[in-house]
Design a protein around this nucleic acid. Structure first.
Lengths: 340, 340
DNA sequence: TTTAGCACTCAAAGTAAACGAGTGCTAACA
DNA sequence: TGTTAGCACTCGTTTACTTTGAGTGCTAAA
């Protein structure tokens, strides 16, 4: 168990390192107002803290930097909740006063604000498309050979795919088919669409003419094609401004990791509600081992959950980040609540 | 006017520099098979070429590098058309054998391929949305307060916007309105939509009930909101692999430039058909002064033109790039031709 | 006109010294 | 017994100096 004094010193070290990115020495600690004892005492305490694994040296005669264990402890126990500045709160509030009706618009803007206010990289995961339910299916014939199928979900999400129309199929045939599909599929979760289309509707349509069948085959192929959940990334280039990423190789591999959309999505999806931090090696990807990833969830309607995340170096202003993400996720949630 | 020998030397210098990124010295030139005379002779010729402005020194005793004028001359007069490798052609061909029906899909894939094959950054500008014509307008009511308006254009492009529905307006009112709008607006170029909505349709609807009027106001607001032409960027991080961008400041400002979508779009849009190169200062943006931008157009249907572009350092493999972009733009054009 | 030769230039790589911010340890002190 | 002043030591960083080598321009001879 750490003593009061050790806690104090650990806090000072981490706070200092977070702002300066430089190893913190005993003398500079002892000069702090909050520290009433000498640098020699600090050194003794630091030796203990190091032995306990909370801080490290970069070389034998350097000051100390927080270890991952140190950050973890800091986040779990030492974090003083920070009041956001008037300006920060204002920026977010202003952004959300514009009447926004589009999910994408809100998310894009949120990602932008988050990365702008933090100078880190923001990643926002939309809610699972497949959990939403079909509101309406529409087909717009473009010309003899092709048409566009448009899916609208109960959440207002719109997807569209072009597909081929066999020449034997008339547009009135198409229309009839759409009517049948709509009557059968309204309210069906998208995730079940595939199955329903094969099992129930296929037979139903076979009972009608051959034309339906042909058109249906194409339409089905278009609808079944799955659309991965989208990832919105903001401030990707902010990474370049962090001193820990002056090594281009690191930047490159980090970018490569972020851009693996499906894996990133899986990672973000794995979180449940609330705010969570992954520090350094707590992240599953090699390229993120000197990064921290803060994730928070937002709600879209009742049971649909999306995730906002912030990626930066382990040396992050955790308390400010927490506050910001909290505020932002609340704004997002309440914006969406208005819709559904 | 340059002599044969000067042309030869200039060509060797540029070819060499393009592959090595290192200043080229007289000795290494004289060792080339194509060069039958001594390094001293080469030095004399190089002095002349430098005086003429085609090559430069990085410092007083360095080898030569091509100047922008040199590159320009090279591109205009010295470019030996390059046969693409079997593999390159294959990669492109394979990508286009998949049946693709969506404009976005084709463009995304093209941007991906281009940046992958070149290790540069590709930028693709979609054709002007506003030149396309309205095929159909659809409205899907979501709940009491909101609905989604969906525009489908003759090119198969789909846009959608959510809008508020005043509570007095019933969904059958909406339906009627859509019918009126569709009958009046089908075939109208999107660019004129705004005007038509105000001038003609407004009056028409006013002639009907007040309900229409209210709903219409919201719908109009949603439709009029303009959607900027989209820019698809591929391989943004490839920039980091170029030795000329080991300076992070440069990378950062280049990214900042690329991300100004509207300005980039204007730049790309300004080109007419065919392939064009902007070398160094021929680019309008400061951050691109040591870059070259190659642009080529593709056609979507008959009169709609989009642009594919490739951004790299001035030291680019121009001949390979030309060939690649040629092949790619042809593939894109022919894919699209099939659709419309 | 070409080329061998040579003095000269300058970035880059290597070496050495000085610096200084930091440490751990010891001994004296309250 | 905990705290602190003092001191020797460590090691990364900076600076200044040297060496190296790839390159040049110029001159004079072929």
């Amino acid at each position: 168990m750490l003593t009061e004094r050790q806690l104090l010193i650990l806090q000072v070290i981490i706070d200092d390192f977070i702002t300066t990115a430089q190893p913190v020495g005993s003398r500079s600690i002892s000069k702090k107002d909050a520290i009433t004892f000498s640098s020699a005492t600090v050194r003794n305490e630091m030796a203990d803290l190091e032995e306990l694994g909370f801080i490290e040296k970069t070389h034998s005669s350097s000051g100390r930097i927080p270890s991952e264990k140190g950050y973890r402890f800091y986040v779990d126990h030492l974090l003083s909740p920070l009041r956001l500045s008037q300006q920060e709160v204002g920026t977010i509030r202003d952004a959300f006063t514009d009447k926004m009706m589009e999910f994408e618009q809100v998310v894009q803007k949120s990602a932008g604000i988050l990365s702008e206010l933090t100078n880190y990289t923001s990643i926002i995961l939309g809610p699972e498309v497949f959990e939403t339910k079909l509101k309406q299916l529409q087909i717009v014939p473009l010309n003899q050979q092709s048409a566009i199928a448009i899916l609208v979900t109960n959440t207002g999400h719109v997807e569209h795919r072009a597909f081929n129309v066999p020449s034997e199929v008339s547009s009135s045939d198409l229309e009839k088919m759409v009517n049948i599909l709509n009557s059968r599929l309204q309210g069906v979760p998208l995730i079940q669409l595939h199955e329903k289309l094969y099992k129930e509707i296929g037979d139903l349509l076979k009972a009608h003419t051959e034309q339906y069948d042909k058109a249906f085959a194409y339409l089905r192929a278009a609808l079944v094609e799955e659309q991965p959940t989208k990832l919105y990334i903001g401030g990707k280039t902010n990474i370049l401004m962090q001193p820990e990423f002056k090594d281009l190789d690191k930047v490159r591999s980090l970018y490569a990791t972020i851009e693996k959309e499906s894996e990133m999505a899986d990672l973000l999806r794995s979180d449940d509600e609330g705010i969570r931090v992954r520090i350094g090696h707590e992240n599953p990807f090699d390229a993120m081992q000197n990064c921290s990833l803060i994730t928070a969830s937002y709600r879209l309607g009742n049971d649909q959950i999306g995730t906002i995340a912030l990626l930066g170096p382990t040396r992050m202003e955790y308390n400010r980040m927490f506050s910001l993400m909290n505020v932002l996720s609340k704004h997002m949630t309440s914006t969406f609540r208005g819709w559904y």
